[in-house]
Computed example of a mutant assay.
Amino acid sequence: MVMTLTLNNDVTLPALGLGVFQTPPDETRDAVRAALDAGYRHIDTAAAYGNEREVGEAVAASGVDRSEVFLETKIWISDYGYEETLHGFEKSAGKLGVEQIDLLILHQALPSAFDKTLEAYRALETLLADGKVRAIGVSNFMVDHLERLLAVASVVPAVNQIEQHPYFSQADVQAFGEQHGILAQAWSPIGGITFYRDSGHTSTLEDPVIVKVAEAHGKSPAQVMLRWGLRHGRSVIPKSTKPERIAENIDVFDFELTADELAAIDGLDTGKRGGPEPEAITLEAFGREIPEA
């Protein structure tokens, strides 16, 4: 069973997908193949991950029809600006080996050059109008970024991909998005490695509240966290390179969390993010050249 969510332009996407952040290119093909074999039909990558080509190769070699696989990628900040972003699409599509990308999003807001962010989004609107992409969106946009974008955009973003897991749920960002028809999509939905690097927390996988819920359902802590995210109406894109974990992560549609269990997991929020502060994203610190296709 593949649960789907409907975006604000009536395009549907599988609610659970495979993320390939920090997956080395040579491991990406195998991870995507394992995911497709396990029933995934949604793959999330990004120009900045350096593995779009391997994602495309794995999909092409899988025997699964291209029309059945929802491909999502992101434009990096170095390619912001109207013409630059149009070319960023050409680079990503070329590496993925596709004519059309299902969902193309801006990887970060660029607060120090927000005019370039807006020009990049205008390019996404053009790509959408031209049928080059089926849906457009943003990633790591906070409420003030969304407000500034919505003030000038002609197309409301379909998705805002943000860090969301039990220790950092960003309920305020999700709620603002929901008011405007923007789907929240959780990266690091099981509290990935970026979170506990600086946060002083142990792994979410060892949290006693989550472990207790998992034991009650005969499921793993990771499965409980993914189910929790889905119950909150999000798309979730867990990352793994291990076939057994990839298969485990999609096996989350045969149990339900109780209201008390949901509330207990909600109560774990620390308000501390694991990824970079959105306001700290600058071209000087994070800019990198995205190679041609």
Rank of each mutant, 00 (worst) to 15 (best):
G191V: 00
G191H: 00
V133Q: 02
E206H: 12
A259F: 06
A186E: 01
V155W: 07
D115V: 08
T202V: 08
P14E: 00
K242E: 15
T4C: 14
N51K: 11
N8D: 10
E277D: 15
K95Q: 12
Q108Y: 15
A109P: 06
I290F: 12
Q108E: 14
G274D: 01
I75V: 15
T241S: 11
S220Y: 00
Q170C: 06
S154I: 02
K95F: 07
G97P: 01
G275Q: 07
Y196F: 13
P276R: 06
I77S: 01
S169A: 15
V59E: 09
S199H: 08
G88F: 05
E277I: 10
S67H: 14
S92F: 13
R148L: 08
I136C: 04
E27H: 11
P14K: 02
E277G: 12
N160F: 13
I77C: 03
L36C: 12
E27A: 13
R227H: 01
T23L: 11
K95G: 08
P208H: 04
E248K: 08
M1G: 15
F141D: 07
V224Q: 11
T282V: 13
Q164W: 11
G50R: 12
N160T: 12
L106Y: 08
T126K: 09
A47R: 05
I136W: 06
V32W: 01
M225Y: 10
S188I: 00
Y40M: 05
D260K: 11
D37V: 13
V252G: 01
D30G: 04
T258L: 09
G233V: 12
A293P: 15
E256L: 15
D254C: 03
L118P: 05
K212R: 15
A47G: 08
S139C: 13
H217S: 02
T23N: 03
V224E: 05
R231S: 15
F286Y: 14
R234A: 14
P291T: 05
E68R: 14
A153R: 01
A123Q: 10
E84P: 03
G19S: 10
V98T: 14
D115G: 12
Q164P: 02
A135S: 06
E215F: 11
T28M: 06
H180R: 11
G50S: 08
